[in-house]
Simulated scan of single mutants.
Amino acid sequence: MELKKGTLSGIRRLNRSTILQLIRENDPISRAVLAEKLSLSRSVVSIIVDELLADGIIREAGIGESTTQGGRRPVYLGFVPESRFALGIDVGGTKTIMSLVNLAGDIVRKKKIRTLHRGSASIEYIASEAAEFIRNTNIPAEKILGTGIGVPGFVNPDTGLLSNAPGLEIDELDIKSLVAGTLPGPIFVDNDVNMAVIGEVWCGTAKHATNAVMITIGTGIGAGIVVSKQLYRGRRGYAGEIGYFQTYDNPSRPEVGFLEYGPLDAVASGGGIVNMARELLEDYPLSILHESSCITSEQVFAAAESGDVLALRVIDSVSGHLAAALNNVIVLLDPDVVVIGGGVAGAKDLLLDRIRRIVSRMSPIDCSIDLASLGEDAGAVGAAGTVFIQSEYLKLS
């Protein structure tokens, strides 16, 4: 790990998170060891350490033993994760999760609500619920560094402009301006899967990965991409929209508009699973899915677990499409790990084992394929992590 050298103000601005990360990872640690690890003078390190102590982000955690040469006994430094918090909000097509997260990535408060509305009304409703949630935590306002919001759709992270979000029926909406004054600022908005992959790289399945891809399978399908511990967004922030992967041998459907779900979404998302089961239901009169008046993807997976032939056919089809998509991602990016999350990932081994087997036959590149360890919390934790990154309290690398 290396600090950038320059003016005193530049060191404070650019390298505060690096020192904080070392203290977090090596708690307890002395100033001398910090200086040694960073190849800097103790006086330079002490300037930043004293600032962190004054802010209450770290604490003095005891006194060590003198070296064999004698001299002053080292004062150890410890990390104080409860010194600062961030609000992370993960907006989904059917549910929204809001979490207050500390500097260690621990969720200290959480609330889950239904995404009741569509259009701008959905965001206004979520913002009002989140504001009440924050008030009820009784955390001092000065300890909350800001709000991160993950939304399903195309997002300009610089402006907070959301566009092309079919799950919320939003064509274009300036989320940052809409919620300003209602939620703790500054406010950072990004695609929900980008937020989720940050969560998994920060403190989840991909924690030790340098290059990682997270694929979420729910109302739609998307990917978050981390290259060299940095989030990759592409030219306009649209990287990872793999729901638009072409999955047919001979694509013949009309041109796909951005307010429509893509080809992979249509055959492998939660909605795609339900639609396929409904279409095939008449061909399988003995299927237990006939007992349901409104089939859900969860019911399809449960039926497959019990050996239902229709459900197993659906799962096999979905697994094939998803495996093809993962193969394309792996041979293009050669990541350390592909993490699978989202509601459909709740099927766990039933889906994952099939995908792994198919990918192993398709791909010449070996790559770990694992489930997201943060589960439904990945998006909200990553959204809070984004606040910490932008505020220079956290580095992924």
Rank of each mutant, 00 (worst) to 15 (best):
R59M: 13
L326T: 07
V256C: 12
I358F: 04
V318G: 03
I126K: 00
I139K: 02
R72C: 04
V274I: 15
P140F: 06
V338F: 06
G218I: 06
A277E: 05
R16E: 12
L173C: 04
Y244L: 12
A212F: 04
L352T: 07
N250I: 11
E200K: 08
G64T: 10
G262L: 13
I19C: 05
S41D: 15
L371P: 00
G271K: 14
D283Q: 15
D249H: 10
L14R: 14
F245C: 14
R73M: 14
S319K: 01
N327H: 15
T137N: 04
L161R: 05
S30A: 10
K207F: 04
A239F: 07
P166G: 03
G237N: 08
D249I: 04
D158K: 08
R253A: 14
R278W: 02
D171K: 06
A165P: 07
I126R: 06
I217V: 15
K176H: 09
S228M: 09
G342Y: 01
R114M: 07
G92M: 10
M214E: 13
I113H: 08
V309R: 07
I288C: 08
V314I: 11
N194D: 11
L103F: 01
S360C: 10
A212T: 04
A302L: 04
E82H: 14
P263I: 05
F154I: 11
S293Y: 04
I175E: 01
F301K: 01
A277D: 14
A347G: 13
N194R: 02
V300G: 01
V359I: 09
A383D: 03
P186Q: 11
N191G: 13
S269W: 08
Q21K: 15
L162F: 06
V387A: 00
S306N: 12
S397L: 02
G341E: 04
V151T: 10
L350N: 06
H321P: 02
R84P: 04
R357E: 15
R13W: 01
A180H: 14
P157G: 00
D377I: 04
L53D: 10
N250P: 02
L333V: 01
K176M: 05
S30P: 09
A180Q: 15
S368G: 08
N275M: 12
D171G: 01
V33N: 11
V45A: 15
G93N: 06
V197E: 02
T247Y: 01
I149S: 04
F154T: 10
Q246I: 09
A104R: 02
A384L: 00
Q230R: 15
F245I: 15
E129Q: 12
R72I: 13
I58P: 07
E298H: 03
T386S: 00
T210F: 01
G218W: 06
V381S: 00
C294Q: 15
I389G: 00
F133H: 05
T137D: 08
S306W: 01
L322M: 07
Y248V: 03
I139M: 05
N250W: 06
A121V: 03
P364E: 13
E60I: 11
S373L: 07
K112V: 12
R253M: 12
I48P: 03
G78Y: 08
I113P: 06
D192P: 10
L40H: 14
H208G: 02
G199C: 11
R235W: 13
